[in-house]
Design a binder for these strands. Structure first.
Length: 528
RNA sequence: GGGUCUAUGGCGCAGCCAGGUAGCGCACCGGACUUUUAAUCCGGUUGUCGAGGGUCCGAAUCCCUCUAGACCCGCCA
């Protein structure tokens, strides 16, 4: 094992980049600029998985640059994709736009030029927030400007050969019958309803007829328009089974990752690129999809879609990058509940990097440090940030809801976790607080109070409201319970239920002082 | 029909992709503190790493076979 020379920074991204370089050298292609691509869907809400595709492609770009090559990430939004389903939480008025390319549908929220740009922007904003740089391209412009017209031409000329091959490779037979090109009907703006009937090679035009069709189980009405589409400037798009290949060749893409759901498409596209377009396809890596935690919570609620934006309410950008860079295989079920451990794991990586934690195995050390550098986009900080266990922050945040930052900070100082108040810790408390508020909704329990308990509670409120110094609130509570023949155990439990909504909590005397005696008295009064 | 992934203490998972004494969180047990709650702190227990075979000085990790489960594709993008 020790004989193995470390490649780059020593993590999977470096290995991938090296494989890519070796392949390119074999192919003898120019390495002046190595372009990597990430495709963004523009029809649904961008899940963190889509973000991952781009973030990982960016990792490969970083690795290539680290090896001394120039590289660029192209973020390509497929905004000619047709709207098939209205996403959860979006207005039903979108119904009339079903089957239209998302870039031709008005933004239902009115903040972007189209529905498609609205969706893409969510993803691009996520990339910006975690520090990923990219060059943005979109399908609408690509097709309008005819950037793919040579490839489309070649593909359509070879459509029957391609149709047969698709059937052979993945068992899908429709392209033996249909052209792998979907024109946008110039009359009703719909995709899919317009069936390409013939390709006139000399004129580079596709003839089509717009008719009723089905998308999924839904019927979509066509407008009966007979039209022709110029592949060099009219709107339309290649089927996915061949579109990647066209784009790779046109844009000279050397790397693209893909999720296992489009494995078959990639297989076909690789063949098309190689055999039809005479362009060796980019190097690939396949990754598993992120799944929602199974059988948990309200799976249909909008809150379950994990977007970068939502994630960043609870965790920092490092936690996202760590999630995506730590490995590419595995990672199946993902939820916001993974954030705390990722936050802590980053701290651990940083401690190792700065030598505060010793790692004996040199290979592991290299890997850990490499991962740390990638999570910092190969610009690691000069000095360590302040570390506070994120779970502790969440626990404290559960307890202190009002004036949270100050109170939690005070506790941290008391515990000796931090030495001085720092803005970066405030930020962490804010994140932990959001997490606590969102995921620790306490069920409002009906509390049954018998007469003795009520009497005790009354005495307690009186004591708390008095101006006398209460030497020891803990002790007072205990005495009150005892003198009224109430089990202290039960009495404490009830107090926790009233104050925190849980049956347990921190030591209650100091805790009441922290929150404020009067305030607790008021809380208790509501139950009397 | 085709394909991918997963299987590790009671539960949830990391470690595997570049082989080198099996780890974390929760739970559990003990101690400290506390006027018998709880929290907190300190310490501790828990595993033939799904089964079988192979490679190797050495396998949770690499290779093959098998079993079980999950997911994806076979609408469309």
């Amino acid at each position: 094992m020790s004989e193995t020379k470390t490649i780059g920074k020593g993590i999977w991204i470096d290995k991938l980049a090296q494989e890519l370089l070796e392949r390119e050298k074999e192919l003898g292609r120019s390495l002046d600029l190595i372009k990597v691509e990430s495709g963004l869907g523009a029809s649904g809400i961008p899940h963190i998985g889509s973000l991952g595709d781009a973030v990982r492609a960016y990792g490969v770009k970083l690795a290539l640059e680290n090896f001394g090559y120039k590289s660029e990430l192209i973020a390509y939004s497929d905004d000619l994709d047709g709207l098939r389903k209205i996403p959860e939480g979006f207005p039903k008025s979108l119904e009339e736009h079903i089957a239209k390319p998302v870039s031709l549908i008005p933004d239902p929220f009115g903040c972007h030029e189209s529905y498609g740009m609205h969706m893409s922007s969510i993803l691009l904003d996520g990339l910006d927030k975690v520090g990923i740089k990219y060059e943005f391209r979109r399908a609408l412009d690509t097709y309008k400007q005819g950037l793919l017209k040579d490839q489309i031409h070649t593909i359509l000329q070879n459509s029957s050969k391609i149709g047969d091959k698709i059937s052979e490779l993945v068992g899908q037979e429709k392209y033996q019958k249909y052209l792998p090109y979907f024109p946008v009907c110039s009359n009703c703006n719909r995709l899919y309803t317009a069936e390409a009937t013939e390709y006139i090679s000399d004129e580079k035009k596709v003839l089509y007829n717009c008719h009723d069709t089905e998308i999924g189980s839904k019927k979509v009405k066509g407008c009966n328009h007979d039209g022709e589409a110029d592949i060099g400037k009219d709107l339309g798009k290649l089927a996915w089974k061949v579109e990647f290949a066209a784009r790779w060749a046109a844009f000279d893409i050397r790397f693209e990752a893909y999720g296992k759901d489009i494995m078959d498409s990639v297989k076909v596209n690789d063949w098309v690129a190689d055999e039809i377009l005479n362009y060796p396809p980019p190097h690939h890596v396949k990754y598993e999809m992120f799944l929602d935690k199974g059988g948990k919570k309200i799976s249909k609620s909008l809150g379950n879609v994990i977007t970068a934006q939502k994630w960043l309410e609870f965790g920092n950008d490092k936690s996202i990058l760590l999630l995506l860079y730590k490995r590419i295989t595995g990672a199946r079920e993902l939820g916001f509940e993974d954030i705390p451990s990722l936050m802590n794991e980053y701290n651990e990586l940083e401690d190792i990097y700065f030598g505060r934690i010793k790692v004996d195995n040199p290979a592991k050390l290299t890997k850990s440090n490499g991962l740390f550098e990638y999570v910092n986009l190969l610009k690691p900080p000069k000095e360590s940030s302040v570390h506070v266990n994120f779970r502790l922050l969440i626990e404290l945040s559960k307890i202190f809801k009002e004036d949270r930052i100050q109170r939690v900070m005070k506790k941290l100082l008391e515990y000796g976790v931090i030495k001085t108040k720092k803005p970066e810790v405030e930020k962490l408390i804010e994140l932990a607080g959001n997490f606590a508020d969102e995921f620790d909704q306490q069920e409002k329990v009906e509390i049954d109070l018998d007469e003795l308990t009520k009497k005790s509670l009354k005495e307690l409120t009186t004591a708390l409201n008095s101006d006398e110094e209460l030497e020891d609130i803990q002790n007072t509570i205990y005495q009150i319970a005892k003198s009224n023949n109430v089990q202290p155990k039960d009495f404490f439990k009830i107090l926790y239920q009233i104050i925190l909504g849980t049956s347990r909590g921190p030591k209650i005397g100091p805790f009441i002082s922290d929150i404020g005696r009067r305030k607790v008295a008021d809380l208790i009064s509501e139950y009397l």
